[in-house]
Amino acid sequence: MLSKKQARAFFLGGTLVTFLIFIGLTIFSLSKDVDQTNHENITEAVVRGKNLWDSNNCMGCHTILGEGGYYAPELTKVIDRRGKGYIKAVLMSPVAWEPNGRKMVAYGFSEEEALDIIEFFDWIDDIDLNGFDTVVSPLAKDNN
C-alpha cells in the first residue's frame, strides 16, 4: 500500500519533472530554428498597433488568434475578409459601428492610428497558426 512518503515523492518528483519538460519545450518552441511566431516581421507600426489593441481592450469583445471575448468577430485574417478600406472606416468612425444591431465602441481613431492597427492585423495574418487560420476565416485566401 502506498505510504504518505511515497505519495509525497510522487507529487514532488512528478511536478519537478513535468515542469522541467515544460520549460524545455517552451525554449524549444520559441527557438529560432522552429519559430513560427512571425517575430522577424514585427515593425514599429505593428508594435504601435498592438499597443492600441491592448490599451483599448479590443480583446474584450473580439477574438484574435482565437482568444478574446466571443462577442465580436474573430480578427485573424480580417484583411482578407473585409479589405483594408473597410477596416479603416470602422476604426475611424465617429459613431458606433452597428452591424446587425450589435454596437462597437466609437473609438474615432486618427488615420495614423487606424493604419497602425491594420499593420498589426497584417502581421497577425502571416503567423503560421497550424491550420486555424483556414478554419476561422471562411473568406481567407488559403481557403478559396
Binding site: T15, T18, F19, I21, F22, L25, F28, S29, L30, V34, Q36, T37, N38, L65, G66, E67, I127, D128, L129, N130, G131, F132
Partner: peptide
C-alpha cells in the same frame, strides 16, 4: 503543467 499546451495549439507556436 504540460496540459498548458492545449492553449498553444493555434496561437502561432510549434
Amino acid at each position: 503543467v504540460l496540459g498548458t499546451g492545449h492553449h498553444y495549439y493555434y496561437i502561432g507556436v510549434n
